[in-house]
Design a binder for these strands. Sequence first.
DNA 1: TGAAAAAGTATATTTTAATATACAAAATGT
DNA 2: ACATTTTGTATATTAAAATATACTTTTTCA
Lengths: 191, 191
Amino acid sequence: MNKEAAFEEQNVGKRIGANLRQFRISKGMSIEALAKQTSVSKLTLLKIEHGEANPTLSVIWRIANGLHIPITALLSIEAEVSIARKQDALKLSSSNEVFIAEPLFHSHGSMELYRGYLQPYGEYTSEAHRPGVVEFITVMSGQLAVEVDGQTYHLEEFDSIRFKGDRPHKYINPSSALAILHFVISYVPSS
Amino acid sequence: MNKEAAFEEQNVGKRIGANLRQFRISKGMSIEALAKQTSVSKLTLLKIEHGEANPTLSVIWRIANGLHIPITALLSIEAEVSIARKQDALKLSSSNEVFIAEPLFHSHGSMELYRGYLQPYGEYTSEAHRPGVVEFITVMSGQLAVEVDGQTYHLEEFDSIRFKGDRPHKYINPSSALAILHFVISYVPSS
DNA sequence: TGAAAAAGTATATTTTAATATACAAAATGT
DNA sequence: ACATTTTGTATATTAAAATATACTTTTTCA
């Protein structure tokens, strides 16, 4: 089984197994209880937890479903504390860009966070991202209109929007005040 | 195959297949070229793209690897446009909770978004979440102090913090103004 | 329009995931 | 210490994933 060398090298199975065990135990379930709840046999679950399995998508899905967690949660890893301070007003006003996006933290798995500033009455058209990308935008200050697929959505302060980012879309600031925005860009699925 | 009813009902296979096809085509590859690059047979790829397969983890991983995308991008399933409006001030002020968290959207893969309100001088201690969980908090209005591992971090308006959420932590509003917060809770891995 | 590439179909085979059952070992709780 | 639950092992069977090969249809494009 040479074509699976890298697969085994990276311990994909073991990592998933360890995760599964954590999830199961954190829910206080026995393997048999989980077997019942997921319709996956006890032995299969056991093998997966030990990293000795190569489960099918169906089995992976049934487990995630039975645990009420997303499939991708079965692949998680850690991170530490860090803070992203707001940039100086100076630095900001000196820019003549209509739209500025500041990455808040280094890319975290399949997710990125940005702080965005859109000038009064400014418009910005974004390229389509990769398929599967989903954007979440929250208005922290001011107002925002988002145009996706011909539709325009108006957001007031503290409103949020979610949309598929794999098509072109446009941000519009319909007001005379600077719009301060919060972006989450994600690949992550919905179960 | 009754235990896979929900699996098939939700078209998990078809949606993932459609994903794969998008990725492949966006890279301008033929199925055979992909077969060569991933060490997965042409027929298997074909079946997966058509949603007629139940691929093993190993195959899923080899494909993601061959395409140089994270496994979660491949397993990522759709999402539409939806908006979460800020709750009425009424509903808010009528509450006597110190801390209120409103889910913004339904759980999105390994990530959840909340809007949070912490009363003036209010304090809230959060349980430790699951291992692997990371929290991102952004102050949309007011101020916030976050206590993690004995350390206290002070945030001003529009600042953000990231920390491991798998230990107890505390939110403190050190000011006389309502703090309005944005939360991202994530399991997401870093590879 | 005609050749070449890509996509899809058909069939048969090999490999292995998944399950069932029974039993042994280890951990847990009273 | 003992009964009970939970975990892990052994063995055998069934179902199906993955592949190989050859062929047909469709698409591409020069």
